[in-house]
């Protein structure tokens, strides 16, 4: 922890919801790295990741009142804001146009071959994913890191929806057993 003092999570949330700027500085110091890691796993382009991180913290600052501590941890809430922002970015037309040659096709079936190994793949959750079976990894990759729904995956990979659901379930449980060690 970078800051001289630490907040209990409930106290931190209270301070954040009162828009205490010191609490936001603390939040940034302690969580920006983890959120940046998640964003980078979804958006490999460094400059875009920078923009998204900035956007995510501004959104956290704006929407902090809507965070409900009874529904989960603060980090989980922030993580999902970051993940959704990053997915919105890679699915936006402007981002696809920027990438041009590497444009992400709408057709999910092309995606399976397109996972490019990058530094981000050796960090955090992606490192864990590497240990999963290919068919499980693919589902987590498409849903969690690319934002496709199970219906879209079913159509794109030409697998029945029921099979997607079953595989997804086993992938998630596998993931759980690996990260809860």
């Amino acid at each position: 922890m970078i800051s001289k003092f630490t907040y209990g999570e409930a106290e931190l949330v209270t301070q954040l919801q009162h828009r205490n700027n010191q609490a936001f500085t603390y939040l940034y110091d302690n969580y920006s790295k983890a959120l940046y890691g998640v964003i980078s796993q979804i958006v490999p382009d460094r400059e875009s990741a920078d923009d998204i991180l900035q956007e995510v913290f501004i959104n956290i600052w704006r929407k902090i009142e809507t965070y409900d501590i009874s529904k989960g941890r603060l980090f989980t809430w922030m993580l999902n804001i970051a993940r959704n922002a990053a997915i919105d970015k890679i699915r936006s037309k402007s981002y696809r146009n920027e990438l041009k040659n590497q444009a992400l096709p709408d057709d999910v079936s092309m995606l399976g071959d397109q996972f490019v190994k990058s530094k981000a793949d050796e960090t955090g959750l992606k490192k864990v994913l590497g240990k999963l079976k290919k068919e499980q990894r693919e589902l987590i990759e498409l849903s969690y890191f690319q934002g496709f729904t199970q219906e879209e995956i079913s159509k794109g990979l030409n697998i029945p929806l029921g099979t997607v659901k079953t595989r997804m379930r086993s992938a998630l449980l596998q993931l759980r057993s690996m990260i809860e060690q």
Binding site: Y36, G37, L53, I58, W61, V128
Partner: peptide, 25 residues
């Protein structure tokens, strides 16, 4: 599960550039 995921998220992550913090503050 939340804590496990959180712990993983802090592993081996790249540093965001310092100017971002300045911008946010």
């Amino acid at each position: 599960f939340e804590l496990s995921l959180e712990k993983r998220a802090f592993e081996d992550t790249p540093h965001p550039p310092a100017f971002l913090k300045e911008q946010f503050i």
